[in-house]
Design a protein around this nucleic acid. Sequence first.
DNA 1: CGTTGACATGTCACTCTCAACATGTCATTG
DNA 2: CAATGACATGTTGAGAGTGACATGTCAACG
Lengths: 188, 188
Amino acid sequence: MSLRHALLGLLADHPASGYDLTRRFEVSLQKYAWHARHSQIYPELNRLAAEGLISVVEEGARGRRTYAITEAGREEVRRWLLTPNKDAVVRNETVLRMFLLSTLDHAEIRKLLHEWIAEADAELERVCGALDRIEELRREQKDRWFGLFAAEYGRRSFQAQREWAEWALRQLDEAEQDGVERSEKENR
Amino acid sequence: MSLRHALLGLLADHPASGYDLTRRFEVSLQKYAWHARHSQIYPELNRLAAEGLISVVEEGARGRRTYAITEAGREEVRRWLLTPNKDAVVRNETVLRMFLLSTLDHAEIRKLLHEWIAEADAELERVCGALDRIEELRREQKDRWFGLFAAEYGRRSFQAQREWAEWALRQLDEAEQDGVERSEKENR
DNA sequence: CGTTGACATGTCACTCTCAACATGTCATTG
DNA sequence: CAATGACATGTTGAGAGTGACATGTCAACG
């Protein structure tokens, strides 16, 4: 049950509504940590509130409810973080595609690799923007690490993805160069 | 429904039984691409066989059934790979922990970072072993890419994870050094 | 020849997750 | 003042995924 810990963790940084949390999933967690939709988030918030791990601290317009983490909630996050899961769940559709890439032919592989490079570039831009904003915040508050670790991890991941795709393209180039040389030899 | 494509993809490399596939999930896909248990794999294989995407090519001892991918199955994998999913599912419990890391105190953060470095080292060793074995195979068969792309991706991911954790430790060092200097100034 | 452990497949009840449907509020703008 | 679109929360049926239980085979070893 990681969803509840993702929610508790976000609320540990600062209070937010279900709507805010859905946004934060979309812009930050979604792409490389944890994917969740509002239809899952709202019921889970209600459960967390019922269990006393979070509480409503403000009711605003349009039925908006702002939640804050409680002391019990903080303890739960702490407990979860300090209890490492030997076989943590990993599901990443993009990486799965990378895994199965070689079942395609060279032209198709190249096409996908170029798409991934473009995607990595787009994500890198996004993450670097986030890093700048976090850097800004940290001028005021030196010990505010929230977001920084995660964003830097994202940056390095997408950087690695990009470099991997470029490496794979070079591998294909070399293999094709090899092929050409061999057939030239045969034609002599 | 990525599980079926993971299975089809593995069978596209070479035929295997449910037991073999469970093993291959455990040793290769599990850690960075896709997580699945045998209780999910066996029923899915039966469904795939019923749909004609795979077929039993051998029945061995202990009820062992070896499956091979069919032409229809190959087409399905191809179709899936070439239809990129705009918002691909990503769930990674370890990365989620990294995201929420800053809710802990410095000593605890350091502890987790050291654990992740050790874990990354262990995975790196495993992946490098796999890469050596793949390299061996490729001496014979130059155009056999299966596994190579994936293993290299894994290697780069765990390398990035390790470097990130070291970076994070340095950040903490610097922050603490800063703190010490500031309190020394105050004491003058 | 009995025990152990890897090999091998399966089921089931339960929880998690998703896509689609549903409902309404408030601010802006033409 | 009507339309539009972002804000905001919810439900539900279906499918995905899990842990535990279940069952049996075969090879090796003492």
